[in-house]
Nucleic acid binder design. Structure first.
Lengths: 208, 208, 208, 208
DNA sequence: AATGAATGAGACTTCATTCAT
DNA sequence: CATGAATGAAGTCTCATTCAT
C-alpha cells in the first residue's frame, strides 16, 4: 500500500518532468520539428520510457497542452469566482489571465505559433478540445456579462458579443506583449485594457 | 515580344493555379501533413513541375501566405485611404477586413490553425514576415487613431493601445465567426463591433 | 550540295563546341555532378538541342572521352612512327604524351579522378573502350621494345613487361605533375624519366 | 563494464559487416550507382540502421576507402620498417603492396575505376585525403631512396623522382594484373619489377 | 532544326515506434 | 520497468529525357 503510493507519486513526478521539458522544446520549435529523442534527452529518460507515460508523441503533446490550459482556466475561474463584485470579477478575469501568461511565456508562444490544430491525419482531438475550451471560456465570461447587465453595470446588448470582445482584447494585449517584449509587465496593462472595454474610445461629449 | 508576353502570362496563370490548390490543402491539413505530391495532383502538374515555380515546399507555403496577406492588407489600406472621414475609415478598416475573411475562409483557417511560425530548423522568415505585417498594420491603425484624436472624435489615450484593441476586436470576431460558423455573415457584425469599440460596454449612467 | 556541305560543317562545329564545354565541366565536377542543363548553358544551346548531337548524357560523355583519347593516341603514334631511330621513338613516346597532357590539363584531370569506368547499370562501353585503349597502347610500346631488343638497344626480357613499366613511369610522372602542379613543365622531365627507365637506379658498380 | 565492452564489440562488428558489404557493391558499381537500399539488403540491416553507423552515403563511402587505405599503408610501412637492409626494404615495399592487392581485389577495383575524387558539390575531403596519402607514401619511399644513396646502393639522382618511378612501376603492375587477370599471382612479378627499376632496360654494354 | 517546360522515377534521409535484453 | 538499437514507411527533391510549339 505504502509502496504503491510511493510508486504512484514517483510516476507522477516523472511524468511531470517529461511534460515540463517537452513544453520548452515544443515551445521553441513546434510540434513537428521536435523529436521524441530530444524530449528523452532533455528529460533524462530513454526514448522507450516516454512510451510508458504517453501513448506517443501526439499524446504527449496533446496532454501537455490540455493540462496546462486546464490549469490556466481553473486559475482564472477560481480567482474570478472568489471575487465579490462583478467589477472585480471582470478585472480579475483579465489580470489572472495576464498573470498566467507572464509566468508561462514559453507555453504561450505555442499559441502565437498556434500550432496543433490538426496533428495527425484524421484526428482533430486537440483542435476540438481547444475550440471547446474557447467556447467554454466565452460562456463563462458571457455569464459575468449577464450578471453585469442585471446589476446595470453593463449595458444591455448581447452578452456573448461583449464576452468575445473582452476575450479579444485580452488576447491582443497578450499577443502584442509577447511580440514586442516590452519592459513593462503585461499585468500593468490591465487598467488600460479595461478602460477601453468599459468606456470605449470615443471622446467624451461635453454635457450641457 | 508578343510571344514572351504570352508565356509570361501563362507562367503566372500556372503559378496561381498551384497557389490556389495549395492554399486549400494547406488550409485543411496544415503545412506538415500536406505533401508536394498532393499539391501536384490537385493542381494537375507533375511533382517536378512545382519546383519550376517554387524552390521547395517551404517556399511554396511562404509565398502563398505572403502574397495573400499582401493582398488583404493592400485591400484594407486602399479602401481606408479612400474613405473621406475618420469615422468611415474606422468602419472600413473593420468591414474590409471582414469582407476579405468571408471571401477567403480557407486561407483564414490557416491562421486559426496559426501554423507556420517556424517551418524549417533555422529559418523564421515567415514568422518574421508575419510579425512585421502585424506591427505594420497596428501602425496603420494607430495613425488613424491619432487623426481621430486630433479631430476630437476619439479620446486622448495612447493611440497604439487603441489600435491594438481595435485589431483584437476584429480578430476575435473573425475567430468566433469561423469557429461557430454562424448563418449571419461576418460583415453584419461590423456595427456591433464598432459600437463596443467606440462606446464600451458600460451602462449609461443616467444623467440627472 | 554546297548547302548540305555547309550544314555538315556547321553541324560539326556545333558538336565540337558542345564537347569542348562539356569537357571543362565534366573535368571539374565529374560525370554525375554535371547536369545536361549546365552543358547546355555553357555551350549556348538549349537542352533539347544537345539530344540532336548525342543520344544522351552518357553518350556525350563517352564520345568526349573517346574522341580525345583517340586524338592523344594518334598524335603519339604518328610522332613515334615518324621517328627514325628506336631511341628517338622511345623518347617521343614519352614526350608526345607529356606534351598532350600539358595542353589538356582539364581533360587529364578526369583520369586522375578516374571516373567513368561504369556509367549506367549494365553498360561498360567506356570501361571496355578504355581497357582496350590501354592494351592497344601497351602492345604498341611492346612492339618498339621488341625492335629495341633486336637492335640490342634493350635487353632481352619480356617486352610486354618493359612496355608496362615505361607506361607506368609516364603515368606516374603525369600524375605527380598534376597533383603537385610544379612550375617546371612536365616535358622538362622526359630525360629524367627515360634515364631511369633505361639505366635503372642502381649505383654504377665501379668497373675494374 | 563488461556489458558495455560487449556492446562496443558488437557495434564494431556490425559496422565492419556493413563496410565489408558496401565495399563489394561500391567496387562493382561505383559510388553513384550504388544505393543505400542495396547496402542495407546486402548487410542484412534496415536502411535506417545504416544511419546509426554513418552519417550518410558519402560518409560510408569515405570511411570505407580511408580505413582500407590506412590498413594498406600501415601494413606496407610496418613490413618495410622491419626489414633489415635497404634492398629488402625496397623489395618488401613492392611485395607487401602486391600482397595487399591480391587480397583486396574488389577494393582495388575502385581505384581502377578511380571514382570518388569529388563526391558532393563542395566537398573534396576524399580527394584531398587521397592526394595526401599519395604524397605521404612518396615521401616514405623517398626516404628509403635517400638511405640507399647514402649506402651507395642507389645512384645519386633526385630521390623523389626515383620514389615516383618506383611507385609508378608498382601501380602499373597492379593495373595490368587487374585488367588482364592473369593466372600468375601478382606477387610473382616482384623480381621482374625490381629488376627493371634497379637496372633499367638497356642492354648490357659488353665490357671489354 | 531548335527550344525548354513538363515529366516522374527513384535516390537519400528522417524519425516515431517497437521489442529484445 | 527501463533501455535504445533497429526498423521501414514516407517525404522531399533532382535531373535525364521527351515532345509540343
Amino acid at each position: 500500500m505504502e509502496k504503491s503510493l510511493r510508486k504512484e507519486k514517483e510516476f507522477k513526478a516523472r511524468r511531470s518532468e517529461i511534460l515540463k521539458e517537452a513544453e520548452k522544446i515544443f515551445a521553441s520549435k513546434g510540434f513537428y520539428l521536435t523529436t521524441m529523442s530530444e524530449i528523452a534527452n532533455a528529460s533524462g529518460f530513454a526514448i522507450g520510457t516516454l512510451y510508458q507515460f504517453f501513448t506517443g508523441k501526439e499524446d504527449l503533446y496533446t496532454r501537455m497542452i490540455c493540462e496546462k490550459l486546464e490549469k490556466m482556466y481553473s486559475e482564472i475561474r477560481e480567482t474570478v469566482n472568489n471575487s465579490p463584485t462583478t467589477a472585480e470579477k471582470i478585472e480579475n478575469l483579465v489580470s489572472t489571465h495576464f498573470y498566467f501568461v507572464e509566468n508561462n511565456v514559453d507555453f504561450c508562444n505555442l499559441f502565437i505559433r498556434g500550432e496543433g490544430a490538426t496533428l495527425s491525419k484524421g484526428k482533430t482531438i486537440l483542435r476540438d478540445k481547444m475550440i471547446a475550451d474557447y467556447l467554454n471560456h466565452i460562456a463563462f465570461i458571457e455569464n459575468i456579462m449577464r450578471i453585469g447587465i442585471e446589476e446595470r453595470l453593463i449595458k444591455a446588448v448581447e452578452p456573448r458579443v461583449m464576452a468575445c470582445v473582452l476575450f479579444g482584447i485580452v488576447r491582443v494585449f497578450i499577443y502584442d506583449w509577447m511580440l514586442t517584449n516590452q519592459e513593462a509587465p503585461l499585468s500593468s496593462r490591465v487598467g488600460c485594457a479595461l478602460d477601453i472595454f468599459m468606456n470605449g474610445v470615443r471622446a467624451e461629449v461635453p454635457q450641457c
